[in-house]
Design a protein around this nucleic acid. Sequence first.
RNA 1: GCCGGGAUACCCAAGCGGUCAAAGGGAGCAGACUGUAAAUCUGCCGGCUCAGCCUUCGGAGGUUCGAAUCCUUCUCCCGGCACCA
Length: 427
Amino acid sequence: MESPMSNPIETLRERGLLQDHTDEASLVEHLATGRRTFYVGFDPTAPSLHVGNLAGLMVMAWLQRAGHRPIALAGGATGRIGDPSFRDEERALMSDEEVERNLEGIRRDFGRVLDMSDAILVDNYEWTKDVTVLEFLREIGKHFSVNQLISREAIRRRMEDREQGISYTEFSYTLLQAFDYDYLYRTYGCTLQGGGSDQWGNILSGVDLIRRRHGAQVHAITWPLVEGSDGKKFSKSAGNAPWLDPDLTSPFQYYQWWLNTDDRDVERFLRMYTFLPIEEIEEIARAHADDPGSRMGQRKLAAETTRIVHGDEGLRAAEQATAVLFGDAPVSQLSDEVLAMAFEQAPTAEIPRSELEAGIGLLDLMTRVGASKSNSEARRLIEQGGVRVNDEPITDSARVVGPQDLATATTLVIRVGKKRQYLARFL
RNA sequence: GCCGGGAUACCCAAGCGGUCAAAGGGAGCAGACUGUAAAUCUGCCGGCUCAGCCUUCGGAGGUUCGAAUCCUUCUCCCGGCACCA
């Protein structure tokens, strides 16, 4: 923990974590003159947070380091509604069980990045579920002008889209979020809300609501929505954004994901996703530019981001697995123990030894290990020359593996392309 | 409730009786190049016991030698109108 900073806003700005904010002078002053409480909300739309949520966690961490108290809000209520902002489609409502299950995982994720001994964790379902419609309309709805709401870009876009439209439910989303801010203001003295830049409108709804109901000025900040230079690298739909939960994405896989960062994004991401001093980052960026082939920027980025989420232990495992699976040494020269370690980090399957003795079709094995979704896909990969067993390229899709193919006493490595590695262990 | 529009593979989107496992784009995957980059080029991209076969075009049924394409019906989405209050 660092000593409190007088101006965390400036820190966020130089970190590339600041997009919009309410009046800077009063916001800076506010943060400099006392320990404040702020909140950031997360929707429980998935069983874990992923790197797309990391910017928010980093902002929270910086503010926490500056001596302020974070409230992590899990959107159990709002998540049941669905935020229409900049979505082109009405979101499907999630079941209660699904929301509950997701909240569990998300709670754990906060602890990976924040110091939870000085943080508050809330679920807005708690204070929303018993509010009556009448009460809500009288106390909250009264303060909102529909004229204003429909002029908002996020909503207007949906209203103008003849194909989609917007339901009253989603239209009300911003009121609910404003209600959250109002509640946290009253209950915890929360005076700052942060969110991705798409949340700017929703956050301001809360700021306005609190001014109207309590005559108090509270604040808002947003950070930019992050995209890789190659487009939608961080979106879940791209299917490759790693989870923070090590059970869903191992530290090794997490590390590898960062290691594959585009050159153009390295410096920006070092600023956003690590706590390294700016000077050090600039130095790394310079060194990286001199010799991009060494990818020292990516290495540093991967190391730091992995450490933040998975700790020193996780980082060590990731680096060791990387050394093993991407090292120069033929896998057949590795010890069974070393491979077993990597085994913990890469996608794997355990298979009875007897099956190996009898001979297993490579297509079948690939599918079981997760290297392919189907035999057809496995066949294609082999025919395209993308598959190796240990270090041996395979071109025969009818190939059957047996005991002689083991790299070590119990393990065999299936490699697809240059980056994907799968282990099969025979016990 | 009525009228009209729509539902196609991961996403967008063609198709409108056979030549459709289904154009095109995006995403994704593999190969070449390389730095486990970027850009570019090439191939793949429903499944299978893979020169062939099987299952797909919201669900169910029907017409036809033959349907993603026609008919009936159901579900859901969108828009307009009406009704209720």
